[in-house]
Deep mutational scan, measured.
Amino acid sequence: GGHPVTTQMVETVQNLAPNLHPEQIRYSLENTGSVEETVERYLRGDEFSFPP
């Protein structure tokens, strides 16, 4: 991942996926670069990993 992630982006995802840890959200956003894509992954039931 190398996309810039803002606190705003993390908070937006958190509102839609409250049971995800912020670190999981941030890591996913760094890989996708997209709030929409991260939320899609969540709704699909994809696994969210923590940063290594």
Rank of each mutant, 00 (worst) to 15 (best):
P18Y: 06
T7A: 14
G45P: 01
P22M: 10
E37H: 07
G33I: 02
T6K: 04
P52F: 08
T6V: 05
Y42V: 05
D46R: 02
V35Q: 02
Q14A: 12
I25V: 06
N15H: 14
T12W: 15
D46W: 10
P18M: 07
G45S: 02
S34C: 04
R44L: 08
P18D: 04
S28H: 07
S28V: 04
D46A: 07
V35P: 05
F48I: 04
V10C: 07
E36P: 07
P4Y: 14
T7F: 11
R26S: 06
E36L: 11
T38E: 01
V39Y: 12
A17H: 04
E23H: 09
T6I: 06
T6E: 04
M9L: 05
E40D: 13
R44E: 07
V13F: 00
V39N: 03
F50W: 15
V5C: 05
I25R: 00
S34P: 00
S49P: 15
M9C: 05
F50I: 04
L29Q: 01
S49H: 13
P4D: 12
L29A: 00
L29K: 00
T38C: 04
E11M: 13
V13W: 01
V13E: 02
G1Y: 13
V39D: 03
Y27P: 02
M9I: 02
S34T: 05
E11V: 10
T7I: 14
P4N: 14
V13L: 04
S28D: 11
E30A: 12
E23M: 10
F50C: 09
S34E: 03
S34I: 02
E37V: 11
L20Q: 02
P51Q: 05
T32L: 05
E30G: 06
Y27N: 07
D46G: 05
T32G: 06
V5R: 00
N31S: 15
E37M: 10
F48Q: 01
L16R: 11
G1D: 11
A17P: 00
G1Q: 13
V5L: 06
G33R: 06
G1L: 12
F48Y: 02
E47M: 12
E30K: 07
H21K: 10
E47G: 08
T6C: 07
V39T: 08
E40F: 13
R44W: 05
L29T: 01
M9A: 06
Q24G: 01
L20N: 01
P51W: 04
V13K: 00
S34M: 02
L43R: 11
L29S: 01
L29H: 02
P51K: 05
V5T: 06
N19W: 09
Y42F: 10
R41S: 12
G1P: 13
H21T: 15
H3D: 08
N31T: 14
P52C: 07
T7W: 15
R26G: 03
L43V: 09
R26A: 08
Q24I: 03
E11F: 09
L29N: 01
E11S: 11
G1W: 13
E37L: 13
V10D: 01
E40N: 15
Y42H: 04
R44K: 10
P4G: 12
L16K: 08
Y27D: 04
V35F: 03
T12S: 13
P52H: 09
P52I: 08
V39G: 02
T12V: 13
R26W: 12
G1A: 14
M9F: 02
T7G: 09
F48M: 09
R26E: 06
V39L: 13
P18A: 07
T32V: 03
F48E: 02
L16H: 10
L16N: 05
G1N: 13
I25H: 00
I25F: 00
V35D: 01
F48V: 02
V5K: 02
N15T: 13
E40G: 10
G33T: 04
Q14K: 12
A17L: 13
G2V: 15
E23Q: 10
I25W: 00
V35I: 14
Q8Y: 11
R41I: 09
F48K: 00
S28C: 04
E30N: 06
E40C: 13
T7Q: 15
T32H: 04
P51L: 05
N31I: 15
M9H: 04
H21Q: 09
P52T: 10
E47D: 13
N15E: 13
P22N: 06
M9D: 10
Y27L: 10
E47N: 12
V10G: 01
E37Q: 09
E36M: 11
L20S: 01
Q24V: 04
F50H: 05
